[in-house]
Design a protein around this nucleic acid. Structure first.
Lengths: 240, 240
DNA sequence: CGGGAAATATAACCGAAGTTAATGCGACGA
DNA sequence: TCGTCGCATTAACTTCGGTTATATTTCCCG
């Protein structure tokens, strides 16, 4: 009865079989959506909460000049936005990057879950805190890291997150991001992303091609990124 | 019985007099701390939750190379970090910028508040969401805005937040940040911050001196910043 | 299998912000 | 009252990453 979502939450609080069943049941309403499908648009009034069960999505904000800044990547098991119906209006948009399976939890059900089971509340809180930690790490990257460091850091983040949900081998994982998407995420131009990627490839640090990330020299990569995975608070692996 | 904290939360959920009294009582334990006092250091295991009742603080992360990135400013009424004791280890530090009055809420009391009163829980959630919105806005700034735009945007944010808690006049507010602190916040060098500030002053947009921000041309400032205050979800003024 | 769009790759040039360094100016304590 | 320390200011030079433009490759999809 478990799925990517219950797996993730189980890493954040000790959930009983009943809790897991409850959560799994809550996301029984699953939709298959194609790549490039908007789940939420800025300005929408949020109703259901979305949970990624399979595939990638990202949250982003457009600027008046047409630029786009990606704010976060959502992987299987992640909440898309855990607002719990408190906002009048979404302040950003969410779109799928690959074809995806998305569970739709009506807000009432979310609220019921939070009220009823303190374990689940706890797991939601924790999830929220981790997401916030990721946002903070992005701010640090954008503010103080060079282009190469930023990209290396994002690769570390995504690789570890993929590993935490069992979707990475020891040196490799799927990474279905074009250089344009990457550029929108790290606040660089696609041209410069290409230059940096070339550098990392030539220096035998990592390779990114045909939708997959291959880490050749993990130590060097983490060194360049100044990566400290602590902020991901990833208990999953240790528990499992 | 109200204070800066209960005022802020009242803007997020309808709190009864009893709720307010409960919250005010929860932060009866107030400490006066000097400027530059560390409330939380990265790596600490968090115990109590801190609430700013007066003065300014900021959260930041140090980089291996000695650089510093400020992640958020905390104003009167703000939670310093609403982790509710869920983390093993803080992933960033929090330090006062001015002399401040800080309330210390033991984690047990926080948990009790959350469990007991759904209004209060709701207000905490909302507060959390606003903070997250601020983080996202910072990412957009760092990723996609020029130096001038970034500084203009931060000034807009801080002015509006000060206004929301009744600490700004129609064109002015206290802003006790040195150019060095500002630089650490917007991800620029102090030298460049100075250049930009000079430009804004010469163009009669705004002035920043002796700890105060004076907005001369608010329309132009918001224009430069591409500021849309929506993300602050500031219901306070409208309700009051 | 072949044509077309999207994604990647490269090059030449430009400009915003970083670096380094020197100077000015208060505020505060001795 | 003076000296000092931190902050603000300014200048000269450098560099990282942006811009624009043009291949080239990949990968769909008929």
């Amino acid at each position: 009865m478990s799925n990517a979502f219950t797996d993730r939450l189980s890493g954040y609080a000790p959930l009983s079989d009943a809790d897991v069943a409850l959560l799994a049941d809550a996301c029984r309403n699953v939709r298959d959506v194609p790549a490039g499908h908007h789940m939420i648009r800025e300005g929408d009034s949020p109703d259901p909460v979305f949970v990624m069960l399979d595939g990638w999505a990202c949250g982003y904000k457009m600027l008046p000049d047409g630029g786009r800044q990606i704010l976060a990547f959502m992987l299987p098991g992640d909440f898309c936005d855990i607002h719990i119906a408190v906002l009048k209006e979404m302040d950003h948009s969410i779109v799928t990057i690959t074809p995806a399976k998305v569970a739709t939890l009506p807000r009432k059900q979310m609220e019921a879950l939070v009220e009823a089971k303190s374990n689940i509340t706890h797991a939601f809180w924790w999830s929220q805190l981790v997401d916030q930690g990721v946002l903070r790490a992005w701010i640090v990257s954008m503010g103080r890291r060079t282009a190469e460091e930023r990209i290396a850091h994002l690769m570390c983040e995504l690789y570890i997150r993929m590993r935490n949900i069992g979707l990475a081998t020891h040196d490799q994982c799927e990474l279905p991001l074009t250089q344009l998407v990457l550029a929108d995420a790290v606040g660089l131009t696609p041209v410069h992303v290409n230059r940096v990627l070339k550098g990392l490839r030539l220096n035998k640090v990592m390779e990114l091609s045909s939708g997959a990330l291959k880490i050749i020299d993990p130590v060097r990569l983490a060194e360049i990124a100044g990566f400290d995975g602590n902020y991901l608070h990833s208990r999953l692996i240790k528990v499992a």
